[in-house]
Amino acid sequence: MDALGINFANLVVQVVAFLLFIFLFWRFALGPITRTLDARQERIRESVQAAEEMQKQLAATKAQNEAVLAEARREAQEIIARAREVSEQNIARSREQAQAQADEMLAKAREGIAAEVAQARAELRQETADLAIAAATKIIRANLDRQAQMRLIEETLAEAGGRNGSRPGGA
């Protein structure tokens, strides 16, 4: 044993030294590093989990957004459709009103025109009559000299005599 270098006292001391070394190495070096490794692993796992969670939330939010957007789009379409309908109705109504107003105005205009035509006609007749009378008066005044008057009287008398002869009792 001695030839191989085995010495009992040394062996005992080396065993104790090695056990002490294991304890101290674990307590101050290997243990803390292992805990750091574990902590990092845990942190990475948590981070990955959080990232996955976030991605899920993102997807959910996206879906929700899209749903909201689709709803909004649908409502907008509805509002536009309703507005169009209302405006068409309004247009139709105003067109009708305009038509009615126009008709009314046309009718009034026609009435007015007719009244004026009638008045004009009446006035024209009056004026024509007046004119005729004036003309007649002028003609009569111009033509009725002594001779003409005499002849006219004679003619008239002749006519009257003729009339009296044909018609007994008449003047």
């Binding site: 070394f21 190495f25 101050f28 290997l30 803390p32």
Partner: peptide, 11 residues
Amino acid sequence: FILIFFSLIAR
């Protein structure tokens, strides 16, 4: 050496 060197790293 191991104890000092690795303890310093671990600390």
